[in-house]
Computed example of a mutant assay.
Amino acid sequence: MLHPAAWIALWGVMAILLQVLEPRWLAAIAVPVLALAAYFAGREVLRLLRRARWLLLTIGILFVFATPGERLPVPFGSVGLSVDGLVVAGEHLLRLVVLLATLAWLWRALGYEGLLSGLHCLLHPLGSLRDRIVVRLVLALDYVERDARARDWRAWLGAGLDADDGGEPTDIVRLAVRPLRLVDRTALLACGAVLMLMLFK
């Protein structure tokens, strides 16, 4: 299996390519990608899409009502809905759904430690600053996870029992870092080459 850094880089390139794909190619790619994401990480995909539902709804409404074009038949056209608005909204929503679905798939495949290890490797050029970034990300993810558990009433009931476990607090963050192999370096170089081609296209 590739190094987590390579998978994150590949996902980043895919996320950028999604923004420049023509609608027909986007639709052709979205079908198998969403099917695979649902098969391998269906629960994570649904959870992430559920959390992003208001963002998706807002984007859809904005593009539907703010895009000029040929009006739809009455009564939809009388409130400002247009054919072009529906097409543009569907295109942008599909891009975002594919992006979120593949992100959930990446999370499922790499896990918490894998993502952090990959980011730690990709941020290597930043020197000592990368450690600060990764530690802050660890703390942020830990807070989000604890906040999600705190919304469960069973966690509230057990909070008093687990409030003092007698352990000593610690500020040490441990991260397992794997060395890059030749295939990993090749994948990273390929991702960099694709990005350079897109920038100087």
Score class of each variant (00 low, 15 high):
8 I>T: 03
95 R>Y: 07
148 A>T: 12
14 M>G: 06
14 M>V: 04
180 L>M: 09
94 L>G: 07
124 H>G: 05
153 W>C: 03
116 L>P: 01
82 S>W: 10
89 A>T: 06
30 A>M: 04
49 L>I: 05
29 I>M: 08
113 E>Y: 05
89 A>P: 01
184 D>K: 03
135 V>K: 09
164 D>A: 14
113 E>V: 08
50 R>C: 00
145 E>S: 13
166 G>F: 11
194 V>H: 02
4 P>W: 03
20 V>H: 04
66 A>D: 04
16 I>G: 01
7 W>I: 05
55 L>S: 06
189 L>I: 14
99 L>N: 03
101 A>Y: 02
84 D>E: 15
190 A>P: 00
91 E>Q: 15
181 R>Y: 10
8 I>Q: 00
94 L>P: 03
149 R>G: 01
46 L>A: 12
62 L>W: 12
84 D>A: 09
122 L>M: 12
197 L>M: 15
141 L>C: 11
20 V>M: 08
3 H>P: 07
70 E>S: 10
110 L>V: 10
107 W>H: 10
59 I>D: 02
146 R>C: 05
13 V>Q: 03
192 G>D: 09
11 W>Q: 09
161 L>Q: 13
130 R>T: 05
23 P>K: 09
171 D>I: 13
2 L>F: 08
10 L>M: 11
97 V>A: 03
87 V>N: 02
90 G>R: 06
47 R>L: 08
49 L>N: 00
195 L>W: 06
68 P>Y: 10
167 G>Q: 13
45 V>L: 02
49 L>K: 03
177 V>T: 14
81 L>A: 08
60 G>T: 01
144 V>S: 11
42 G>V: 01
30 A>L: 03
175 L>P: 12
9 A>N: 00
120 H>N: 13
126 L>A: 14
21 L>A: 10
86 L>G: 06
105 W>D: 02
59 I>H: 02
40 F>Q: 12
187 A>M: 09
170 T>N: 14
107 W>N: 07
172 I>T: 15
182 L>H: 11
26 L>F: 07
11 W>S: 04
136 R>N: 14
135 V>C: 10
97 V>N: 02
33 V>Q: 03
73 P>W: 12
181 R>E: 15
32 P>G: 02
